[in-house]
Simulated scan of single mutants.
Amino acid sequence: MTMTGKRILLTGGTTGIGRAMLIAFARAGARVVTLGRDAAALDEALEVARACGGELHGLTADLARREDIARIFDAVDERLGGLDILVSNAALGADPIDAMADEAWRYVIDVNLVGALACTRGALDRLGKGGQIVVIGSISADIHAPGESVYSATKAGLQAFAETLRKEVEDRDIRVSLVEPGTAGSDMQQADADEQRDRIARAEMLRAEDIAEAVSFILTRPTRVDIVSLRIEPRVQALS
């Protein structure tokens, strides 16, 4: 199968894994609406990806805001005329819960979990037979590393959501895949760019492109193939 001409909503396509997926989808000739909170990062990602091909549209939006969810799907309807694929990727990092202000940890949950569910709800109104949903989770849902209490809770929620949703929509011929990356180079990492390159060279960290390639693999399988879950780690994964 091919992604050429496929209508994709990609959340969080401005940095890290999302940016790598945006570029991969552009190279594959897809039609994409993506979004991010930072206008400058969005413009930069779109400029790079548009040089690779495809048809790309972007908007600044915050998944914690109901009105922005509505704007996202207005853009999907206007720019794409429907939807074939949702790649739910947008997420924020977090500190331990007792190191965050009340409004801060609640905001992370609203973006990472509630916003992801809201986008899925909007996508299901538009996906027909053969539609696909890819949820980008994290191995944090299982390894429960110290310092990640809030982040792990959101990713565990996404894990349960994706695995249950798959059963709920199978009679509609909609496939749901959960991708759970290990440590991957991105702007969410505390390590700077030089340290990330060193850790990638030591096989302690994945490249964002590694995840983008895996998602592209999922989205190009024939309809008889269902990639239910895919856990991807660097060879030397801490706390695995």
Rank of each mutant, 00 (worst) to 15 (best):
residue 4 T to F: 06
residue 6 K to V: 04
residue 6 K to Q: 04
residue 8 I to Y: 01
residue 11 T to N: 11
residue 12 G to A: 12
residue 14 T to C: 10
residue 16 G to M: 10
residue 25 F to G: 01
residue 27 R to D: 00
residue 29 G to E: 04
residue 30 A to V: 06
residue 36 G to M: 14
residue 43 D to Q: 08
residue 50 R to D: 00
residue 51 A to P: 00
residue 52 C to L: 03
residue 57 H to S: 07
residue 60 T to A: 14
residue 62 D to P: 09
residue 64 A to T: 06
residue 69 I to E: 00
residue 72 I to L: 14
residue 80 L to M: 09
residue 84 D to Q: 02
residue 87 V to M: 05
residue 87 V to F: 07
residue 94 A to V: 09
residue 100 M to L: 12
residue 104 A to L: 01
residue 104 A to S: 03
residue 106 R to S: 00
residue 109 I to G: 00
residue 109 I to E: 00
residue 113 L to W: 08
residue 113 L to V: 04
residue 115 G to L: 10
residue 121 R to C: 03
residue 126 R to G: 01
residue 127 L to V: 07
residue 128 G to M: 01
residue 134 V to E: 00
residue 138 S to W: 11
residue 139 I to E: 03
residue 140 S to N: 09
residue 142 D to Q: 07
residue 143 I to F: 06
residue 150 V to Q: 05
residue 151 Y to E: 04
residue 153 A to G: 04
residue 158 L to T: 06
residue 160 A to S: 13
residue 161 F to E: 00
residue 164 T to N: 12
residue 166 R to W: 09
residue 167 K to C: 05
residue 171 D to W: 14
residue 174 I to N: 02
residue 176 V to R: 02
residue 178 L to D: 02
residue 185 G to Y: 13
residue 186 S to Q: 04
residue 186 S to W: 06
residue 187 D to H: 10
residue 187 D to L: 13
residue 190 Q to Y: 15
residue 198 D to Y: 01
residue 199 R to I: 10
residue 210 D to S: 06
residue 212 A to M: 04
residue 216 S to V: 15
residue 217 F to Q: 06
residue 224 R to F: 10
residue 225 V to S: 09
residue 225 V to Q: 10
residue 227 I to C: 08
residue 228 V to K: 11
residue 228 V to Q: 11
residue 232 I to Y: 11
residue 236 V to I: 14
